[in-house]
Simulated scan of single mutants.
Amino acid sequence: MKKALLIAGFFLLTGSYSFAQTFEYKTITVVESIVPNGLGRSRMISSEEERNYKEFTSQRSEENDERNKSDRGDIRLKNFEETKLLNFFNMGGIRFQNIAANDAVVTSRLNDLAEQGWELAFVNSGVESYSGEDDDGGIYITRYIFKRSKN
């Protein structure tokens, strides 16, 4: 009996015996306008609904080249959280106060998620920038991907 207890204790103390841990993920997307004259829209978006990607996925091959025919309306959702942010540009050009204000709002959200047990796992960003008179659009997108243990 002592041997069994010693062996069990050894495994528990050394971590040789582990439990599978599963996570859930959450994505927050920040879209910041880089359209001149303050005409764009900047927002922080997060979904309040879930979607199962399998419902909108098909497997294609040489033998089976049928595309997915999911209705776009089934993919769209109506329940999401939208936080207003300020645009990078105003009538005078780049507005650094707006960038700092956006940082404060985004940081507030990140801190709130951390308090809820979410851990920042990945950050991805991309830019479609404004390139002059003939280009009337531009956005800066950052995706924050969080994870936390499922209980």
Rank of each mutant, 00 (worst) to 15 (best):
K54W: 08
S33N: 07
Y25Q: 04
G132R: 14
V35Q: 15
G132P: 05
D134E: 14
R109P: 00
S33I: 10
V30K: 14
K69V: 10
T57E: 09
E50Q: 13
N98S: 08
Q116P: 00
L85A: 04
D135V: 15
A101K: 14
F96T: 15
E81N: 11
G93F: 01
S108V: 00
G126N: 10
I145H: 01
A100V: 13
Y25R: 11
V30S: 12
R60D: 00
V35H: 06
T107D: 11
E119F: 01
I28T: 06
E119A: 06
K84I: 11
D134V: 13
A104Y: 04
E81P: 08
A114I: 04
E82D: 11
G117Q: 03
K84D: 05
L77P: 00
D112Y: 15
G92I: 13
G126P: 02
D103H: 13
I141P: 00
A104I: 09
G117P: 08
I139V: 12
F56P: 15
L77D: 01
E128R: 08
M44S: 09
E66K: 15
A114N: 09
E115T: 14
E128W: 02
F80C: 09
D136L: 03
E81K: 14
K69M: 11
N87P: 01
K69T: 12
R72E: 04
A121K: 10
K78I: 10
E133L: 14
L85C: 06
N52L: 05
R143W: 05
R41F: 06
G93S: 02
R51K: 15
Q97I: 08
Q59S: 03
E115P: 04
N98L: 03
D135W: 06
I45Q: 02
E63D: 05
G137T: 11
I34L: 10
N90I: 09
S108R: 14
E50P: 00
Y53R: 14
L85W: 09
E62D: 06
R67A: 15
R109G: 00
A104H: 02
R72T: 05
I28P: 00
D136A: 04
L113R: 12
D136M: 02
I145L: 03
G138T: 07
T57M: 03
